[in-house]
Design a protein around this nucleic acid. Structure first.
Lengths: 214, 214, 214, 214
DNA sequence: AATGAATGAGAATTCATTCAT
DNA sequence: TATGAATGAATTCTCATTCAT
């Protein structure tokens, strides 16, 4: 109960609303939604503002360098996001095969949900050397952490050295990303996502074997 | 005879006699070179003109809709280009395995040389539905033609139906493209191109078997 | 007694008890400091707030029309400030020559300390007719008052009519200001301030004689 | 005759007109005219474009960094302009006194005509260290050249060393500028320009004597 | 045919000012 | 009373495109 009859209070038109994180999230959502619809370079900051029903000033308050900042800052969180998604408690899987299936599926879901971001990211790295380099570093750092936790929890992974495992995961991550991006944004490789994910799993298993022989 | 005595005209007007195709090629080269350097959305038509030492009017003469036209028109030739590169007389290869190696290598070389174009293409399709669709169609058409010629020349391919083969080639083409693009423009999968191409060949063989089982 | 036992209130609330005048002075100081550093038109109100570690709301509380108000209100005090500085008890100087030396020196010190304000003032008058006019009036009013006091204290000045003296002082004030501003903010006329002030004194004496002959 | 009856051709509304220097001059004139009217920081680039009936694109073509560039580039010519104005053939003046009168008068006319520029210049130097420094250098360079010519033409000036003369002229130039700017833009020192210029001449003579004694 | 000055819509960005807390 | 998030008009600046020469 807000003390107003008929719930009017909720409709009360306040000129200024204050909720920092909510607004930042709204900017992210709107930005990536628009990119998905019209592509990166046709999505302007003003566009985002209008579409999100937020003033441009607000966008520039949180992202002083505009579009570039939105991608950069989102990117800083995106890895952690993947972490959350891919709950390591799942790694109780009996065998590596099942584990890899999970891994691929998680990446796929993550990619699908963040299609707009992925488009933006790939549109930007070419002209943003810094972002490009940071990306590589972050992927590496992320999997260092990831592998450490993994080896503690799952004996299957203890047969490989930590360094080697990191290398392998970075490879798999890139491989899956490459194929997924193409399937989702350029030209689909299979007519259903289920078939595609199944193929991906097999691809990963094959590539892993290949890679470990090197 | 150019109508001028002593043939002076040819020499004197040299800088004006640069012919149409020469200029178009110069525009392509400059455009993709710049995209490679600074990314698609930071490369403006005016910029291309200045960098190519050509007037902006000339660019608009050949490409009335600017950037988009450059990509579209280049794309219309690019498939034929691949055709030229991938000489079918090579398909006398004793076995399919060798043939696939050639196929992958040709795609890789082609991709490497056209990195700028690939960046541009991927930057554009998202906001250019028409280009996106035409692309799919063209890939399909190209491989229809390709497969027909292939089946005539090489008995190995006659065991599969034409339609099935086209499907397979489109799949392989996309797969290879996906992984190559990532390796060349996002994050390398192997530390040398040789290792990478070898992996690609194996990947194609594996995927082919997998695909044909479907 | 502040009504709180043990006087804690004064300590606890210290950062909130900063009183009105203190804040106003902080705003003045910060504003003119920034102007000195980056020029008037590159100094924004928000900038001042951040630099002074005061909220922008507070600035607008004291100066509802922002930058312009800061200058206007400061200006309203600045004349009085000069008054304080130039203590009339000094006018016991034996002769006019010594008096003028003092006058020039006071103006110089004042100007040096208020360099930021002077920049701001000169940047503003052009677009603020009202300020411009008020300025002229204030200068005149100030010297009316000044001259009256002067004539009472110092017989040397009783040989001239009050009106004439005011005119003379306004002239001298402007002359000194003009040359000083240039020396301090545009291009120095002498390599040391001492030489400059000495020159100024002579300049004033000369100009006075010239002026009085008119 | 333009071949059109009733001279209509002259009225013909062409969308694009081409005359580089004419446009640059128009930009200068408009810019300084507006500054004179509303002050530097209230004069925007768009304002200038609209007022000059020119597109902003054109302004940015000639002055890629906007307002700052307009001032900088104008400044690069302004010294030469003074040179032209102050024709050295006038230096046949019998004595230095007459010469100085001319010098002051020329500066005054120049200043009066370029009031807008002077306002802009003084509004900018504070935030444009480079312009400030270049200004000093240019003044010095200009008078080096000036003095050389002067000594060749007029025997009166041969009694002083070249270096000394340059120093003296720079000093006089600054002095006159300082007082003139104040008189024209802050608060007039005399009620007519004639009286003012006469005072200036006397001021220069006095200051010169003072300066040379140093 | 080729040139590049000129255009102006629109994208990026700043900043004075308001108002919810 | 003090704060600073939010606003959006105004400003700076870019770029695709047109058109006089």
């Amino acid at each position: 109960m807000n003390g107003y009859p008929f719930g009017f209070a909720m409709t009360l038109n306040k000129k200024f609303t204050r909720n920092k994180q909510e607004k930042i999230d709204l900017i992210y959502d709107t930005f990536f939604k628009l990119i998905l619809k019209q592509g990166y370079h046709k999505t302007s900051t003003n566009h985002v503002a209008k579409s999100a029903k937020i003033s441009i000033g607000t966008i520039y308050k949180y992202f002083p360098r505009g579009k570039e900042d939105i991608i950069r800052k989102y990117f800083e969180d995106s890895m952690e996001t993947f972490f959350d998604t891919h709950d390591l408690s799942q790694t109780h899987d009996e065998n590596i095969r099942d584990f890899l299936n999970h891994f691929v599926l998680d990446l796929f879901k993550n990619h699908e949900e963040n299609k707009g971001y992925n488009l933006a990211f790939r549109s930007t790295i070419q002209s943003d050397k810094m972002l490009h380099d940071t990306h590589k570093e972050k992927v590496s750092d992320f999997f260092k952490d990831y592998v450490q936790k993994l080896r503690k929890k799952n004996k299957h992974f203890q047969q490989f050295s930590e360094a080697r495992l990191v290398e392998v995961f970075v490879f798999m991550y890139n491989l899956v990303n490459a194929v997924m991006y193409h399937h989702l944004s350029v030209m689909e490789l299979f007519d259903t996502d289920e078939k595609f994910v199944e193929y991906l799993s097999n691809l990963v298993v094959f590539s892993l074997k290949y890679y470990l022989k090197t």
